[in-house]
């Protein structure tokens, strides 16, 4: 099966959810005109990233009527976007949801919230706990958010749940300007190359652009494929809507050429993990 995916590399306005919703609708409209079947926005695309004390002011439950105009468009195209979620448990999460045919298919809460150096996420948001795979018309999808992508354990969990396509939704600030590419871009591309190769998945990496308090989000969105191709490469630092048509057949091909999945044994993983957890009192 072939699926046309739109990568919405946008620059959200910090804290202005109305304007950001408009921008979403504009990009969705363009993606529909181009016959895309899925559109993916970056992390916190509805709110912007460096919210600090604004976090509480822009938090919305996933079923808020604020999202209705976007929900309506999901009749014509599947939509994944990021928002600050006000959970029914009275906690706040860095979340992303996937809409299909006017209903919420999945809400994912970011698990690893960086809180060091320039990052302050755990000061303002709680951590999610569950990596899920959900069935769409276009195969099994999972969402991971930004820092999650630097934890191979989470990618492994999507792999173990037979995810075909991982949506990696990001707000990655640029750092490292000595080489041809920013160092962070090099890191992300190497990681995605490795995951797509060994887990024979597609990874749709959508990173935002724009500046917030001096942090410059670099963009450079692309789709990594199991056969090591990079599709729909968006240039850095520019708002862009790019398109990639992925062929899920590639997963099957890759898994025959390089049958790692067939060798995989979750019992071995579990037994070893149990032992490690026991020895370390449940801590890493």
């Amino acid at each position: 099966m072939k699926v046309k995916i739109a990568l919405a590399q946008i620059n959200p306005l910090l804290g202005d959810i109305e304007k950001n919703r408009e921008k979403h609708l504009k990009f969705i409209e363009k993606a529909i005109e181009n016959n895309a079947q899925v559109i993916v926005f970056p992390e916190l695309s509805i709110t912007g990233y460096r919210l600090k004390d604004l976090t509480m002011e822009v938090a919305l439950p996933s079923d808020s009527s604020f999202f209705n105009p976007i929900l309506k468009q999901s009749k014509k195209i599947d939509i994944a976007f990021g928002f600050v979620e006000r959970g029914s448990d009275s906690n706040i999460y860095n979340s992303a949801m996937y809409l299909e045919n006017q209903s919420i298919k999945s809400v994912y809460r970011k698990i690893y919230l960086p809180t060091h150096g320039m990052f302050q996420e755990l000061r303002f948001m709680g951590r999610g706990e569950k990596v899920a795979t959900f069935k769409t018309r276009y195969g099994n999808f999972s969402i991971l958010i930004c820092r999650d992508l630097f934890h191979p354990s989470l990618l492994f969990l999507t792999y173990a749940q037979k995810t075909d396509v991982v949506l990696g939704m990001s707000s990655m600030p640029l750092r490292g300007l000595t080489e041809e590419k920013p160092a962070i871009q090099e890191t992300v591309e190497k990681a995605i190359d490795t995951y797509t190769n060994f887990f024979s998945q597609f990874i749709v990496f959508v990173n935002r652009v724009g500046f917030e308090d001096g942090l410059g989000f670099y963009g450079g969105s692309f789709v990594g494929t199991p056969l090591g191709k990079k599709l729909a490469f968006a240039e850095i630092l520019q708002e862009k809507l790019t398109f990639a048509t992925i062929d899920l057949e590639e997963i099957y091909k890759k898994r025959q050429l390089f049958p790692l999945a067939r060798e995989e044994d979750l019992n071995i993983v579990q037994n070893n993990l149990n032992k490690i957890l026991e020895e370390n009192y449940g801590k890493f």
């Binding site: 750092r175 490292g176 300007l177 920013p182 500046f211 001096g214 410059g216």
Partner: peptide, 12 residues
């Protein structure tokens, strides 16, 4: 705001 790209930046 400083246009940050180095490992450690004033204000960030």
């Amino acid at each position: 705001p400083v246009a940050k790209f180095s490992p450690r930046t004033f204000g960030i």
